[in-house]
Amino acid sequence: MRKVEKEYKIAVYPGSFDPVTMGHLDIIARAAKVFDKLIVAIGVNSSKQPLFSVDERLELLREVTADLPNVEADRFDGLLVNYMRLKKAQVIVKGLRAVSDFEYELQMASINQKLDEQIETFFMMTNPKYSFLSSSIVRELARYHGPVGELVPPVVEQALIRKFAP
């Protein structure tokens, strides 16, 4: 009988993570259980004005995922499919909060599939307790010194407090 080798599955969870939230961490922790390796990749978008620099976001991601041995944080410029090929990744992980997220993400998955038919998109429903949560909501709350402690990990909360210190 022929021995069948298990294929090593590498997935990429792309996003801006400005900042990383508990909703992101929920998807990261769950996806890390499904794939052999999960790369949380910050997409650099020169048309956006982020609150945190790419280096700051990378450091925060590394700190909050330090307990997940098969997760690494990275960054990429350009097309996601090119980054996927570079990393020999087969799967894009996307978190969905609502139907409106699905419409946009379905378009992105379709174009990525057209660009490289070897790449699949894996949709994960966000935990209902985070379905309202977004980085932009967290930034807005933090800007006005609102409570963000239940929305982000402690290290991110402290980084937000420093960013918006009077």
Rank of each mutant, 00 (worst) to 15 (best):
P154K: 07
E117A: 13
A31Y: 00
K114S: 14
A159L: 03
E63F: 01
R2D: 11
A89P: 00
N127D: 15
K87Y: 09
R97P: 00
P153N: 08
K37F: 09
I27K: 03
H145C: 05
A159F: 03
V93H: 01
M1E: 14
N127T: 11
P153D: 14
I42L: 08
L86V: 01
E150H: 11
V34H: 13
H145R: 11
V81N: 07
M108G: 04
E105N: 03
A66G: 04
R97K: 02
Y83H: 05
V20D: 06
R62T: 08
Y130D: 15
K3P: 00
A159T: 06
L79T: 05
N70R: 02
D55M: 05
L160V: 07
F132V: 10
R75N: 12
V4F: 14
L86F: 13
S134Q: 07
G78H: 10
P128G: 11
P14F: 01
P14S: 08
D67L: 08
I137G: 00
S100A: 13
K9C: 05
I137R: 01
E117K: 15
Y144V: 08
S100E: 11
I119C: 00
A73F: 08
I28F: 04
L160F: 07
K114A: 15
I111L: 13
M108T: 12
T21I: 03
N70Y: 05
E140R: 06
S134T: 13
G43Y: 07
R57P: 00
D36Q: 06
S131K: 15
G23R: 04
V152A: 03
R162D: 08
M124C: 13
G95C: 11
